[in-house]
C-alpha cells in the first residue's frame, strides 16, 4: 500500500478526524488547525507516500500511530473518571442509592 487515497488510509483519516472532533475545544473541524494540517498532508501524499526514499506506508503508519495516541489517551481518561474513587458519599447520595428520601426532600 503506497497511496494515501487507498481505503485503509482513508479509514484511518476518518478515525483521526473523529477523535479530533471529540477532543478539540472548538466544535467546528474547519477551525481546527490540526485537522486542516492532516487533510493537507493527505492531499499532498495522495498519489504516493514514497518520497525521499522513505519506506512504503510511512505516512499511513504515522496517521495510525497518531490515531492510537488520541484514542487510547481518551479511553484512559474515560475509564479513569468512571472508576476513580470520588471521596466519601454525602448523606444525600447514600439515601438515593438505597432508594430512600431525606425528611426535608420533596415527596
Amino acid at each position: 500500500m503506497a497511496s494515501l487515497s487507498s481505503k485503509p488510509a482513508l479509514v484511518t483519516l476518518r478515525q483521526v478526524l473523529s477523535e479530533l472532533r471529540k477532543q478539540a475545544n472548538s466544535k467546528k473541524l474547519a477551525e481546527n488547525q490540526m485537522a486542516r494540517y492532516i487533510l493537507n498532508q493527505y492531499r499532498k501524499h495522495q498519489t504516493t507516500d514514497q518520497q525521499l526514499c522513505k519506506a512504503a506506508d510511512e505516512m499511513h503508519f504515522k496517521a495510525k500511530t497518531y490515531y492510537d495516541y488520541l484514542h487510547f489517551s481518551r479511553r484512559y481518561k474515560e475509564i479513569n473518571s468512571e472508576f476513580k474513587g470520588k471521596g466519601e458519599r454525602s448523606v444525600d447520595d447514600t439515601a438515593r442509592m438505597v432508594g430512600f428520601k431525606l425528611p426535608h426532600d420533596p415527596k
Binding site: L52, K62, T65, Y66, D68, Y69, F72, S73, R75, Y76, I79, N80, E82, F83
Partner: peptide
C-alpha cells in the same frame, strides 16, 4: 476487569504511540 486490564492497556498504548510519534518525527528532520 475494565478498571485494571483495560485501563492498563489504554495507558500503555498511549505511551508507546506517543514515544513512536517523537521518534519518527526526530528521525526525519528534512
Amino acid at each position: 476487569v475494565p478498571w485494571a486490564h483495560e485501563l492498563n492497556q489504554a495507558e500503555l498504548t498511549a505511551r508507546v504511540a506517543a514515544s513512536l510519534i517523537v521518534i519518527h518525527s526526530s528521525s526525519e528532520r528534512h
